[in-house]
């Protein structure tokens, strides 16, 4: 299986590669369009600030590539947020794959949310054999509200989307590569879609 991890210079993405390796697969860090288009699975990670990450996608032309991919694609954390229509962070236009906008947490809770929180109302193949209220590791200040594409939700001051799904595209707000054995199981589910 060819697994591409999109490398566009947005933060630490080696951990995703390491996690895939722990599952027994080799993944390639790449920004090469041909490799990405022909890969069996594509992972779109991202850590950092939205507008500068989006600029890197624009510079490399990956903003045109990602939305037209046809194989299973998994966006992680900022990757998921950039797959949405728009994010409040840096007032950034997203790739528009998911029909939802991303907002900053406003309320009594501490921001960023850092730590382990529960995912609920799990739907679909990504969460096969994952138990309701499983704990995932999250680090973020911005969130996608609940919408018709929500396949997992989490409570932090209010309910929001911790996973989205549309056609061949999946997005998770949590870090499966850092969420112990349950996170690795979700990553493994994705690789088996």
């Amino acid at each position: 299986m060819n697994i591409a991890i999109i490398d566009y210079g947005a933060g630490n993405i080696k951990n995703v590669q390491f996690a895939v390796k722990r599952l027994g697969y080799e993944a390639v860090l790449t920004n090469n369009e041909d490799f990405i288009r022909t890969a069996d699975k594509v992972i779109f990670p991202g850590v950092g600030e939205a507008s500068s990450a989006m600029n890197k996608l624009l510079d490399t032309g990956l903003d045109k590539v990602i939305p037209t991919l046809t194989q299973p694609v998994l966006g992680i954390c900022l990757g998921m947020q950039l797959m949405c229509k728009h994010t409040e962070e840096g007032n950034t236009k997203g790739l528009g794959i998911f029909d939802v906008e991303v907002f900053k947490f406003k309320g009594e809770e501490k921001v960023p949310q850092i730590g382990w929180n529960q995912i609920e109302a799990l739907e679909g193949a990504l969460f096969k054999a994952i138990k309701e209220k499983e704990f995932m590791y999250l680090v973020h200040s911005y969130y996608a509200p609940l919408c018709k594409e929500t396949i997992a939700k989490t409570f932090y001051g209010d309910w929001y989307s911790t996973a989205l799904h549309k056609n061949n595209f999946y997005g998770v707000q949590f870090h499966p590569e850092k969420s112990s054995t349950a996170g690795e199981a979700i990553l493994n589910n994705f690789l088996k879609i």
Binding site: F18, R22, K178, S180, T181, G183
Partner: peptide, 8 residues
């Protein structure tokens, strides 16, 4: 550590 440990 990053290769082998699955928590932050």
């Amino acid at each position: 550590v990053a290769e082998r440990v699955n928590i932050p």
